[in-house]
Simulated assay, not measured.
Amino acid sequence: MHLKRPNTNKMWPISRKGTKYLVVPSHSKNNGIPLLVILRDVLKIVKTRKELVKILREGKILVNDEKLRDESRTLVVFDSIGIPSLNKYYKFNFSDTGKVSFDEINEKESHSKISKLSNKKILKKGVTQLNFGDGRNILSKEKISVGDSAIINFKEKKLVKILPISEKSKVMIIGGKHRGEKGVIESVGEKILIKSKESKFEIGKNEIMIIE
C-alpha cells in the first residue's frame, strides 16, 4: 500500500514536494516512519527505493543492531539506524515542536535504547515475558510495571536499567498536543501531572515515556 505525500503525518520532517506516493507505515502509524522514507526523504542516504533495496540485501543497514531487509519497516522513537560502511549512526527522536528528528550519535550509543513496556505475561519459574511498545519481547525476572520504561541492551538482550513512572522521573511526551516536550512528573494518579519548561499539565500514561 502507498500513501499520497500530502496525506502523510505532519510530524514527518519531509518536503510536501517530491515522490507522489510514499510507503505506508507497517505499524505505529501515528508515531512511526518507514525506513524508506527516513533514508531517502529525510537523511537522503539513498536517492531511490531501488538503491535502498540493494544495500539492504547487502546487509549494510542496521536497525537496533540487526541487519534489516524490509524497506517498509517502521521505526519509532529511540530506534537507532546504523550504517557502518559510512560510520554513520542515528537515533529517532522528537523535537520540542513534536516533529520527528534523527540525531546523529556514536556507535556505542546505537547498541541500546529506551523502550516502554506495553504488557507482560507471567511464565513458569518466576520468569516474565516483557512486551515492549516497539515489538520487542524479553524474558526477565526484573520487577517492572506496564507503562514503565527500560534501557535495553541489544547485544545482551537484557534490561540495563528500569525507569519507573514515579514522582521526579523525567519524561518525554510521545502523543497529543504536547508531543516532543520534556518535563518532570510532579504527581501520579489516574492522570500524570507534568511540569515542563513552559507549563504544568495533566496527561494520560499512554502519552508519556520515562527517559530518566
Rank of each mutant, 00 (worst) to 15 (best):
V160P: 00
S196L: 08
N64E: 06
N87K: 14
N153D: 15
L117K: 10
K200M: 10
V127N: 09
P164R: 02
V100I: 15
E198W: 05
L3V: 08
L35E: 05
R179I: 13
N30L: 09
V24N: 07
F78T: 12
L163N: 08
I83L: 13
K141N: 14
L139S: 11
S110I: 11
I208R: 10
H178E: 13
E109I: 09
K29V: 10
E104Y: 06
G147K: 05
S118C: 02
K124V: 14
V127T: 13
S199I: 10
G18H: 02
V184R: 11
E181S: 12
K155T: 13
K17L: 04
N137K: 15
T8F: 00
I122R: 14
L117D: 09
T74I: 11
M11R: 07
E186K: 15
G204I: 08
H27V: 03
L68P: 02
F132S: 10
V171W: 04
G176I: 07
I55N: 05
F92V: 12
F94L: 15
E198V: 09
R49P: 04
E186H: 02
I192Q: 04
L22Q: 03
S115P: 07
V184A: 01
M209D: 06
V37L: 02
S112K: 15
R136L: 15
K54A: 08
I14N: 00
G98Y: 11
E109T: 10
I45S: 04
I61D: 06
D96I: 13
K29N: 05
I151C: 01
Y89T: 10
L22D: 03
K177C: 00
N30M: 02
F201T: 13
I203N: 09
I174S: 07
R136A: 00
G180T: 06
S101G: 09
W12D: 01
E181W: 04
T48I: 04
I144M: 04
G135I: 10
G18C: 01
G82H: 07
E167V: 15
N9G: 00
L159V: 14
L62D: 09
G98Q: 11
K91N: 12
E167Y: 01
L43I: 11
I152W: 05
V53S: 13
I83Y: 08
F154K: 07
G126A: 06
D65T: 08
I211V: 14
S85N: 14
R49H: 11
K50W: 05
G32T: 06
E212W: 10
F201A: 06
S115D: 14
S95R: 12
K182V: 12
G133A: 05
I203K: 09
L52M: 05
F94R: 11
T48N: 09
L86I: 10
L35P: 09
I33L: 01
V42A: 02
I210M: 03
N30K: 12
K4R: 02
P6Q: 00
S26L: 08
K120V: 05
K143Y: 10
N131T: 11
E207F: 14
T74V: 08
S72Q: 11
E186I: 12
N93H: 07
S115Y: 03
K10Y: 00
N31W: 00
L3W: 00
G59W: 11
G18E: 03
G183S: 02
S95D: 12
K170A: 03
E109Q: 15
I174H: 04
S28C: 06
E198K: 15
V184Y: 02
P13D: 00
R57N: 15
N153E: 12
K47A: 08
V100E: 04
I55M: 12
R69F: 13
L62W: 13
K182R: 14
